[in-house]
Simulated scan of single mutants.
Amino acid sequence: MSLPTVAAVVLSQGTRPVELAKALDTLLAQTGIELDVLVVGNGWVPEGLPEGVRSHHEPQNLGIPEGRNVGARLSHGDIILFYDDDAWLPAPDTLARLVATMESDPHLAIVQPRPTDPDGRPGPRRWVPRPGANGAEVGGDIVQFWEGVHLERRTAFDQVGGWPGEFFYGHEGIDLAMRLLDAGWRILYAPGIIVHHPALPASRHAVFYRMNARNRVWVARRNLPHPLDWTYVAVWVLITLLRTRDREALRIWFAGLREGYTTDAGPRHPISWRTVARMTALGRPPII
């Protein structure tokens, strides 16, 4: 009986060589599967990679979602692992367990494991795909997911057109999840399967506040029916004002908000009201 083949796409700018080496070492140590490992150098020529790891060089940084799209197109396997270059797998059967979960239901488009910081630091809010203080320990169907380490079924990924490449950074997973759910697919959180990733704030990225706001607007303009598109943005304006005390950060955020309404958001395909009801029943109505 042949083993399932997983296309492992690792996006890197070459700025974390020690972390990338550990990510690849623990990936190549996985058992019970066949691997096609591809490192996409996003504005970096990949070098010093282990034997058996393929590479692809993009002269310019395409951003995270489009870099992942490139990796998906050039990789081989019915299941795609999108894998951050500073993540690592703590056990040799981690990936096989994720694949077995994916293969247990042909309607699953995405399986997300539970990320934990290896030094025991609390994980950021974005790691938990459901609301509530205990959400990290509650498995089951979800409507959004953490992009850092997860499996995607290639047929589902291709059906909805992959990642929104124009987003560059931020909320691309929300956009993809809405399109998958609207196409009838399931997204599953499997907290019993652990992966490691350093707990670092997303705001460390220079483009965070601008693209956080711009891409919130793009998610709404592309995916939400009226009047939920306006409601979604209004709710996030309120949340941002309550969370953010830095005036310069707020200035950049509101500039990004304006950019979201004055630039091309890409094709608009509003989700159905049935999908809205499904998301609401799963605990995240598409206004938060």
Rank of each mutant, 00 (worst) to 15 (best):
L3C: 03
P4W: 01
T5D: 01
V10A: 11
L11V: 10
P17D: 01
L20Y: 15
A21F: 01
D25F: 01
E34V: 02
D36H: 15
V37L: 06
V39R: 07
G43M: 04
W44S: 08
V45P: 00
G48N: 03
L49N: 11
P50S: 05
N61K: 06
G63F: 04
E66G: 00
G67K: 15
N69I: 09
N69K: 06
A72W: 00
R73N: 03
H76C: 01
G77D: 08
I80K: 00
D86H: 13
A87E: 08
L89R: 14
P90N: 09
A100V: 03
T101M: 08
E103Y: 01
P106A: 12
P113D: 14
P122D: 14
V128W: 02
V128H: 00
P129R: 11
A133K: 15
A133G: 04
E137H: 09
E137F: 15
V138E: 06
E147A: 12
G148V: 06
H150C: 10
E152R: 15
R153H: 10
R153G: 05
A156K: 00
F157Q: 00
V160E: 00
G162E: 03
G165M: 12
Y169R: 10
G173N: 15
G173K: 12
I174C: 05
D175F: 01
A177Q: 02
L180C: 12
A183Y: 02
L188D: 09
L188N: 12
P191K: 08
P191V: 12
P191T: 09
I194V: 13
H196R: 10
H197D: 06
P198V: 03
P198E: 04
H205P: 00
Y209L: 10
N215A: 04
V217P: 05
A220E: 07
R222F: 02
P227K: 03
L228W: 07
W230R: 09
V233D: 14
V235I: 08
T240W: 14
R243N: 06
R247N: 01
E248W: 13
L250C: 02
R251V: 14
A255R: 08
E259W: 13
P270A: 11
S272M: 04
W273G: 03
A277E: 10
M279D: 09
A281E: 08
G283L: 08
R284H: 12
P285R: 02
